[in-house]
């Protein structure tokens, strides 16, 4: 299984990467798109006014960008249609599935904890404003 962990493999020569296959280009585009969404999530985390909108940015941006980057990796590693490539693809899809399940759940749990703690959302509705976000007690 050591082929999965090429962390210390020597860096690829410049001369080798002469031409990118179509799959690799697709994968890199997806990964770049994921990075863009990460940037958006980070900006949102800093710029949004209250807890809920900030969590919204972090939760959605994180999930989508992780998925995009992982799918990009899957395409990049899957350029030779070998058995090992299929195995790797399967594992990456496992991770994608895991993130799709856990990331929204953790965002939801955090939001709920904040709501029960009585954090008030920023709103224009005067009726909501008076009542506040938490209805605990």
């Amino acid at each position: 299984m050591s082929f999965l962990f090429l962390a210390n493999a020597p860096v690829v020569d410049e001369s080798v990467q002469a031409e990118l296959s179509r799959l690799e280009i697709c994968g890199m585009t997806l990964a770049g798109l994921g990075l863009l969404f990460f940037l958006g999530a980070a900006v949102g985390l800093f710029r949004f006014p209250d807890f809920y909108t900030r969590m919204h940015a972090a939760g959605k941006g994180d999930t989508l960008s992780s998925l995009l980057i992982l799918l990009g990796f899957a395409l990049i590693t899957f350029d030779d249609f070998s058995a090992l490539g299929w195995l790797l693809l399967l594992k990456i899809f496992g991770i994608v599935l895991f993130i799709m399940l856990t990331s929204p759940t953790s965002t939801h749990a955090l939001m709920r904890a904040g709501f029960e703690d009585g954090i008030e959302p920023v709103t224009n509705n005067p009726k909501r404003k008076k009542k506040g976000g938490a209805k605990k007690k």
Partner: peptide, 11 residues
């Protein structure tokens, strides 16, 4: 929490 428990049940 319903959502959390269902996810955990799955995971």
């Amino acid at each position: 929490d319903l959502i959390v428990t269902h996810t955990v049940r799955l995971l």
